[in-house]
Structures are given as C-alpha cells and as structure tokens.
Design a protein around this nucleic acid. Structure first.
Length: 438
DNA sequence: CTGGGGAAGGGGCCC
DNA sequence: GGGGCCCCTTCCCCA
C-alpha cells in the first residue's frame, strides 16, 4: 500500500531542515551569498552536483562548498526552492537566467519547463498580435513573458487539476499531473514553431559546425551528439524523461568539466580570471556575453518572427533584417542598375517598381527594355518609407496612399511601374557605400 | 551540372 | 536593452 502524501511530507521536512540549517552538509556560494543544502538532495536533483559530489564523496567529514558566479543569488534561490519544493517560480525576467543556470546545473526538468514557458509566452504574444493587428509585438511580447508563472509538480499533483492552465488571461499558472510530461499545452502555432525549430536547427546544425569552433568546446564532438541535442531541443517539452544515454550525452557536451572553458565561470574554485557572466543557450552550445544577445539568439530556436514586412508579408526575426530587406527589396536604395550593375544617379537612372519590389535601371537599360518613352514625374511618388519610431499605427506608407496624386505609368500586363525618386539622399550616401551593402 | 549573384539569416559589437 | 551596422555563411535562383 502506498501513501501518496509521504513523498510530499518528506520533501517538506527536508525543506524545513534546510531553512533551519539542520543537517546541512553543503554550502553553495553564489556571488557572496551562502546557501545551505543537503548533499543527498542536491545529488538527486542536479547532474552537476551529482558529478561534483561524486568527486568529493570521499571526504564526507567536511562540508562541501561549491562556488558559482555564473548566475545570481536570486536565480539560484528559484532553483533551490524548486529542488526542495517541486515548485518553480518563473517570470519573464528570470526565465532566461533560470534556464541558463539549470542548463549549467544539468537539471533537465527545469530546462524543459523553462522552454515551455518561453514558447508559451511567445505563443501568447502571437495571439495578441493577431488580436490587435499589431505591427510590432515587442510590447506584447514583454507583456506575455512578464506574466509570472508558477510551475508546480510532483507531490502537489495529487491535489491539482489534471490539466494545465496557461492562458494569456491568467497571471499565474499551475502545472498539474504527476510528472512534467503531463503538461500538454501545445497550441497550433506552437507546434508550427516547433516545426520551424526543427527546420532551423537542421540548418543550424551545419552552420554551427563551421562557426562555433571558437568556443573552445570539444571540436570533435561526433555529429550524433549534436543531433541528439537538437532532437532534445525540438521535442515536445513534455518528454523530459531522458534516458541515461541522453543525460550522458548532455553531460559530455555541456559540462564545464570537459574543457568548456568559454562557459560560465563557475566551479568549486572561483576562476576570477574568466569573464564574470556568460549566457549559455539552453538549446545549443552557443554562449553569448549579453542577455539581450541570448534573447535574440533564442529566436532562431523558437522560430519567432515578430517583424513582418508590410509590403510583402515576409516575416523576420530581427528588426535590422527587416529594415535591410525593406531597403533592398522595396526601396531600391542601391544606386546600382539591376541589369548592367553600373552605378546610377537620378540623372542616369530611374526606379522601377515591379509589384512591391523596387530596383533601379540605368537609362540605357530602360531604353533597351523599350520603356524609355515613359513620362516621369519628378516629385510624384514618395518612396516607400520604413516605419519610424512614434509612428507605430500608420508606419508603412505606400505609394498607394497617394496614388491619385501620383503620375506613374503602370504596365498593366506586368505590373511594372517606372518612377523617378529623389536621389539626393542616396547621392550623399554614395560616398559612403560600403562593400557589403546589398 | 556549375558558377555567380542576390537575399536571408546569424553573430559580434558599438552606440 | 534595443537599434543598428558590419561581417560572414548558406540557400536559392538563374544563366
């Protein structure tokens, strides 16, 4: 006969002992703050501590001390509270740090929940974007992520509803079920995101082979290992029960003990000569210096594309990519004839519009194309304008808005429009044309 | 089939 | 932290 409340009471008792500093035999030093805990509990909860305590298990008379500089005391508080209670207090502010810390500590349950939290938040922002037809979801996104979310599992599950609650309308949520795998919130858009995730990572897999060698990680990691990791990242967050093999693979790839020196400056002995903070991507081995860069990087895993091009509908993960796309495709910023590649000015060339695409042709190429007799109105057509700050509602101005005032000639059969634009700014920029401008 | 060019996308880093 | 620029690689299309 099994008494279901026993596990809960046992953990509660251990947590109480921790709070009263009873039988604590492990000190964890995080940025000067000391946390007391029990070796047994840490050993059972974290792959990192399992490895650490295994190495120091012979000297059990002295309290083990571990020092971390890779994350803040607040972050470790969240982690430790989870270890002793099964409840993970996630917010939009701490989720990335918690996930990074959990990755370092090899706590796969926490990583999975953080991933789910992030994906759910992204999904919330997508829904709100659709609802309000917002062109930029940055605010919405932060609103979505900022909702505090309390994930509970394990012993509490007996009294929790068997389904999860994670809705944009709720500030907190509880995860029910006996195991994490019962968390089954998978909206359609999220599944799409996961498909994109897989696609992205298939590509990333090949990219990273050539790019991320500078991380001083083991460069000869067999391909199957990265594939495993990619699969792990792409699989539904509910499937967190990992085989021993998977855990071992994760340990080999992500553990700082295998020469991963570029990592997070954390060890039993502080390494003051290393950069104090690094942010490690929980989906791959990439490490960045700034949280903002990690946030940006995470989009390549989640497939989030918050920046839509209003001209063609294509979506981009980054604003600078969108603006680059817009300048190149829709504004014909390049002072280069698309056909003969010669440099053109407002005197020697004109802007051609084909649907939403714009490019420049020199007068000779225009003549060759047989469209040299088109009447041009020098001041007729304002160029497509990229949205500016403070103009969020009507940020995209098309020629269509003023079409009645515009004297442009359209080829009805090809949707081709020839127009002359003010090149004065381009002329100024031409002196600073960089080789990589496309 | 192949090479070249354009476009997309990811990372580093400065402001 | 966000915006933006630069650099680089990869993918795709076309001649």
């Amino acid at each position: 006969m099994e008494i279901s409340s026993h596990q809960f009471h046992l953990l509660q008792q251990l947590n109480e002992q921790r709070r009263q500093d009873l039988f604590c035999d492990c000190n964890i030093l995080v940025e000067g703050k000391v946390f007391k805990a029990h070796r047994n509990v840490l050993f059972a909860s974290s792959g990192y501590f399992k490895m650490l305590l295994s190495q120091s298990s012979k000297e059990t008379s002295q309290p083990t001390t571990a020092t971390f500089q890779a994350f803040s005391p607040d972050t470790f508080t969240v982690i430790l509270d989870f270890v002793y209670s099964g409840k993970l207090s996630l917010t939009g502010q701490n989720v990335i740090e918690v996930m990074s810390a959990a990755s370092y500590l090899q706590m796969t349950d926490v990583i999975s929940v953080c991933k789910t939290f992030i994906k759910s938040s992204l999904d919330i922002s997508e829904k709100e974007k659709d609802r309000y037809f917002s062109l930029s979801d940055k605010d919405v996104n932060s609103n979505g992520v900022d909702r505090s979310c309390l994930y509970g599992a394990g012993w509490r599950a007996e009294s929790s509803p068997p389904h999860s609650h994670l809705s944009p309308d709720q500030g907190t949520c509880m995860m029910g079920g006996n195991t994490w795998s019962n968390f089954s919130y998978y909206p359609t858009s999220q599944r799409n995101a996961q498909q994109q995730l897989s696609k992205h990572e298939q590509r990333q897999d090949s990219v990273k082979k050539s790019r991320h060698l500078g991380l001083q990680q083991p460069s000869d990691i067999p391909h199957y290992k990265s594939s495993k990791l990619e699969d792990r990242a792409a699989e539904p967050a509910g499937h967190i029960a990992q085989s021993e093999e998977q855990v071992q693979i994760e340990t080999e790839v992500e553990s700082p003990h295998v020469g991963y020196q570029y990592g997070q400056g954390s060890d039993v002995i502080p390494r003051n000569d290393l950069p104090r903070m690094r942010f490690k991507c929980p989906f791959c081995t990439h490490v960045v210096k700034r949280k903002a860069d990690l946030k940006r990087h995470l989009r390549c895993h989640t497939g989030e594309r918050p920046y839509p091009c209003e001209a063609c509908g294509k979506r981009f993960s980054r604003l600078d990519h969108l603006s680059s796309h817009f300048r190149t495709i829709h504004q014909a910023c390049k002072p280069i004839c698309r056909k003969c590649k010669r440099h053109v000015t407002e005197l020697t060339g004109q802007v051609v519009q084909e649907g939403t695409r714009r490019y420049r042709l020199c007068n000779e190429c225009l003549a060759e194309a047989g469209i040299d007799s088109i009447r041009i109105d020098l001041e007729a057509e304002a160029p497509l304008e990229f949205p500016q700050d403070g103009d969020k509602d009507s940020r995209w101005h098309y020629g269509e808005d003023n079409r009645s005032d515009v004297e442009i000639v359209e080829d009805a059969s090809t949707d081709l429009v020839i127009q002359q634009v003010d090149d004065s700014e381009d002329e100024a920029d031409e002196k600073e044309v960089k080789p990589n401008i496309r």
